[in-house]
Amino acid sequence: MSSAKRAPHEKMQFQLTLRRRGISDQAVLRAMEEVPRENFVEEGFREDAYLDVPLPIACGQTISQPFVVAYMTEQLQLRNVHRVLEIGTGSGYQAAVLSRLVREVVTLERFRSLAKRAQARLTRLGYGNVEVLVGDGFSVPDEAGHFDRIMVTAAMESIPDDLVRLLEPEGVLIAPVGPQTGSQTLVRLRKTPDGVERTDLIGVRFVPALAGIAREM
């Protein structure tokens, strides 16, 4: 069956799965519906684009399963005035979802080839409020400024203080924290006048966040 004929049924099931798993923010559900996930997966996996599973992409990375994308997005409690930093661009899918909900998205990717492909894809699909930068998520350049929200889409053994400092007052950061192999805990930090509040959310499994710009052959 062609992708065009499959899409309506698949997208309906896609939305039902997210709702059944507890995603209730209507703006997040609408953003998940609007972003064409099939355009962000590798060609050989497009038949599986709307399954609730992670899928492999280039450079040994993955595109997260839709529930995790929606859950992390919902937990950020986004508003359309927000400026958001994403660490780990990958295919650009998460950045595209964020872009439907906020004013601006800056996303960092340590693999130059992934960053180049993601920027081209996002531009082609009309996500004009996303800027893709090649960079180190452990050392975000000062010129990037500060952010209302930060999302990390790779596993960190601990969240660097330098990343937390980039948050505006009342800003929120969400990241998978734990060992680079095995499972991690999704952690949400909120910067308050009294300090940083931490909330542990759900168990997840992400590829590791590595320091530096990747050397690619």
Results as ranks from 00 to 15, higher is better:
173 L>D: 12
208 P>D: 12
91 S>A: 05
40 F>L: 05
63 I>Q: 03
157 E>V: 11
144 A>N: 02
190 R>A: 04
203 G>T: 14
187 V>I: 15
61 Q>A: 13
49 A>K: 08
26 Q>D: 13
48 D>A: 10
117 R>G: 02
196 V>I: 15
161 D>Q: 15
182 G>Q: 05
30 R>Q: 15
47 E>W: 09
39 N>Y: 11
112 R>P: 01
86 E>G: 08
26 Q>S: 13
20 R>Y: 05
157 E>T: 14
174 I>Y: 06
44 G>V: 08
67 F>I: 07
5 K>P: 00
13 Q>Y: 07
185 T>I: 14
3 S>Q: 11
40 F>K: 04
93 Y>M: 03
106 V>N: 11
134 V>F: 09
118 A>G: 05
11 K>V: 06
115 A>L: 09
123 T>Q: 14
83 R>C: 06
92 G>K: 14
5 K>A: 13
36 P>V: 01
80 N>K: 14
36 P>T: 07
205 R>M: 14
123 T>Y: 02
126 G>C: 11
48 D>M: 12
72 M>H: 00
119 Q>A: 13
96 A>S: 05
18 L>R: 13
71 Y>K: 12
101 L>T: 00
123 T>L: 10
206 F>L: 09
215 R>K: 12
159 I>Y: 10
64 S>M: 01
81 V>N: 13
91 S>K: 09
152 V>T: 05
118 A>I: 06
98 L>W: 05
136 D>L: 09
33 E>A: 11
204 V>D: 08
38 E>T: 00
153 T>Q: 02
149 R>P: 10
132 V>W: 10
143 E>H: 15
88 G>N: 12
131 E>T: 15
52 D>N: 15
150 I>K: 10
49 A>F: 03
195 G>K: 08
120 A>Y: 03
175 A>W: 13
82 H>T: 03
191 K>A: 12
7 A>P: 01
155 A>E: 00
170 E>R: 14
38 E>M: 01
43 E>L: 05
54 P>Q: 10
203 G>Y: 01
153 T>F: 04
124 R>D: 14
11 K>E: 09
37 R>V: 00
81 V>W: 06
43 E>G: 01
71 Y>V: 07
48 D>W: 12
69 V>A: 03
121 R>I: 01
106 V>D: 12
162 D>S: 15
25 D>F: 07
107 T>P: 13
188 R>H: 06
34 E>F: 00
27 A>W: 05
118 A>V: 04
214 A>D: 07
45 F>R: 03
119 Q>P: 02
12 M>R: 15
129 N>R: 13
180 Q>I: 02
193 P>L: 04
132 V>E: 05
26 Q>C: 01
41 V>A: 09
191 K>C: 08
174 I>F: 05
151 M>I: 15
97 V>I: 15
29 L>K: 07
51 L>S: 10
212 G>L: 12
161 D>P: 09
82 H>F: 07
142 D>T: 09
45 F>M: 09
209 A>H: 04
88 G>C: 11
72 M>Y: 03
142 D>C: 00
23 I>N: 11
45 F>Q: 03
25 D>V: 01
3 S>V: 00
34 E>N: 11
46 R>P: 04
12 M>H: 11
31 A>P: 11
87 I>M: 09
85 L>F: 04
209 A>W: 00
58 A>V: 02
98 L>D: 03
17 T>C: 14
138 F>C: 01
217 M>I: 08
29 L>P: 07
162 D>Q: 14
108 L>V: 07
87 I>Y: 08
80 N>P: 10
153 T>R: 07
